[in-house]
Design a binder for these strands. Structure first.
Lengths: 248, 248
DNA sequence: CGGACTGTTGATCGGTATCAATGCTCGTGG
DNA sequence: CCACGAGCATTGATACCGATCAACAGTCCG
C-alpha cells in the first residue's frame, strides 16, 4: 500500500505558495507546514466546509476554488461576509477563539489543505513565522471586512456593486482567476445581493442598469469590466498596492 | 531625576490584566510584555490615535477610555467600524500588515500602553503566547466585524440599534463600564448613526420610538436597557458566553 | 450674550423592499 | 425526444423605509 500522503501536493512545491505574490518562507518553516498539514480535502461545488456553531477539528488553506463565509439571522436573511480564494485560510476564528460564528460554503469544487486545530498552539511555539503568518491572515481579513462594512454601510447599490466587482477582480487577478478585465465569477446574483445587503431583485435592476451603461458585462459566469475608471469613480475604490502576502 | 518608567503601571500589577475575564499569562510572558511596553500615553477626549494612511511607529493597548475605529469614503460619508474598550489592541493591522486603512479616535480621555511596532516580530519569536494573543485579538475583532456587517447588511434600523446597544452593553459590562443595565455611553447619536449606516436624523427618530416603547432610555450620556428581552427579540441578538479573553 | 454642538421634528423625495408573474436554461426521467 | 421541474434572471406595480432639506430648541461654554 502506498502512503496516501505521497499523493499530496507537498508544501515545498506547492503551486500556490510559489506564486510571486506570496512571501517565501525559510526552509525550516516550510518543513513545519508540511508536518502541520495532515491531509487534503476535495469537495464538490456547494459543499459546506464549516458550519456555524459546529466545532470542526480542522482548519484549511484553499488550494483551488472559491468559497464564501456567511452568517444568518433567520431563514432568508443571510449576509455573505466575504469570499475566499486560493491561499486564504478557512477556520481562523475557530483555530484561535475556539468558536465558530459563521459558516463557510464552497462556490465551486474545491481542493483544501487540511490542518489540525489542536496543533495551532504548537505551531506558534515551533515556528514564529507561521504564527505571524496566521496573525497576518487575520489582520488582512479584518481589513477586507472593514472595506465591506464601509461598502454596505455608506454606499448606494450601484456603488456597492462597483466596489465589490473591483475588489473581487483584483483578488482573483492576484491568484490567476481573472485577467484582461474578465473575472471568472462562480456566484449568482443572489450571492452578490447577500454580500451587498440588498435584495436579489434590486441587485438585478442595478446590474441591468450598469450593463446598459457599459460599465461591465456578466454572461456565462464571467464578469467583464468594461470601464474600470468609471467603476472606480462611482465607488471611490482604490486598488491597494500588492505587497507580498503570507500563506500557511 | 526619577526614571519615568517608574511611574508606569507595571504589567504584573496591571488592573486590566488582573480582571477575571482575562486569561492570565505565565510569568515569563508578563515579563516580556513589560519589556515590550515602552511608554504610556494619555490623551484628551476626541484625540486622533491613529490616522488612515499614516504609519505610526506605535501600537497600543487601551488602559482606560473608549475609542472608535472609522473609515471615510468622502467628506461626510463615514463608517464607524467598531468601538474599542480597555484591553483592546489598537493598531493591530498596522503591526502585521504594515498598512493603516482606517483611523482610530478617542471618545473619552484615554490612557494607553505604548508598544513599538518594530518589535512585534521579535515578540513572536520571544513569546509564542504573546504572538498567539495578538492573533487572538485579531480573530476576535474579525468576529465582531462579522456581527456588525450582518447587522448593517440585513437588519432594519430599529433592530440595528437594538443589536448595537446590547453588544456595547455586554462589552462594557465585561470590563466594568456598565452595570445594572446602565451603560456609560460617551458617544452621541451621530456616532451611533455612523456605526449603523443610517443618518443621524433617522437614528434619532428610531431612538425616540424605542424610548417611547420603553425599550431603553438615553439621558445624560447614559443608556439604560429597560427591556432586554424585547431588544434581543427584535435583533435576534445572542450574548456570547464569556470565556477567558486574551490581552497583550 | 452669542455661538457651537447636539438633539428634535416636519415635509418631501427617492432608493430599495416586497409581491407577483413570466421567461430562460439546463438537467432529468418518462 | 419531449415534458417537466428546479433554479435563476427579469420585469412590473406598489409600498415603505430611510435620506434629504430645513427649521428650531436645548445645553454648554467662552
Amino acid at each position: 500500500m502506498s502512503n496516501p500522503k505521497d499523493t499530496f501536493i507537498d508544501c515545498e512545491n506547492c503551486p500556490i505558495r510559489k506564486r510571486r505574490i506570496f512571501r517565501q518562507f525559510e526552509k525550516d518553516d516550510v518543513t513545519y507546514v508540511s508536518k502541520f498539514k495532515t491531509g487534503e480535502l476535495s469537495v464538490e461545488a456547494g459543499a459546506a466546509i464549516l458550519i456555524e456553531d459546529q466545532k470542526s477539528p480542522h482548519l484549511y488553506t484553499i488550494l483551488e476554488g472559491w468559497a464564501y463565509r456567511h452568517k444568518q439571522i433567520v431563514e432568508g436573511k443571510r449576509q455573505i461576509l466575504n469570499f475566499a480564494l486560493p491561499g486564504d485560510l478557512i477556520g481562523l476564528q475557530l483555530s484561535v477563539l475556539n468558536e465558530m460564528e459563521h459558516s463557510v460554503t464552497g462556490l465551486t469544487g474545491m481542493k483544501l489543505c487540511v490542518f489540525e486545530r489542536s496543533e495551532v498552539w504548537d505551531m506558534f511555539k515551533a515556528s514564529p513565522a507561521l504564527g505571524f503568518s496566521l496573525a497576518w491572515q487575520a489582520a488582512r481579513e479584518e481589513q477586507m471586512l472593514d472595506g465591506h462594512l464601509l461598502n454596505v454601510g455608506q454606499r448606494t447599490a450601484q456603488a456597492r456593486v462597483a466596489y465589490l466587482v473591483l475588489h473581487l477582480y483584483d483578488r482573483a487577478d492576484a491568484i490567476g482567476y481573472a485577467c484582461n478585465n474578465a473575472l471568472d465569477a462562480p456566484f449568482n446574483q443572489q450571492h452578490l445581493a447577500d454580500a451587498l445587503g440588498i435584495t436579489n431583485v434590486h441587485a438585478n435592476r442595478t446590474l441591468r442598469k450598469m450593463i446598459k451603461n457599459k460599465l461591465l458585462t456578466w454572461q456565462d459566469k464571467t464578469i467583464v469590466i468594461r470601464d474600470r475608471e468609471a467603476l472606480e469613480e462611482i465607488s471611490h475604490y482604490e486598488r491597494d498596492e500588492d505587497g507580498k502576502r503570507m500563506i500557511i
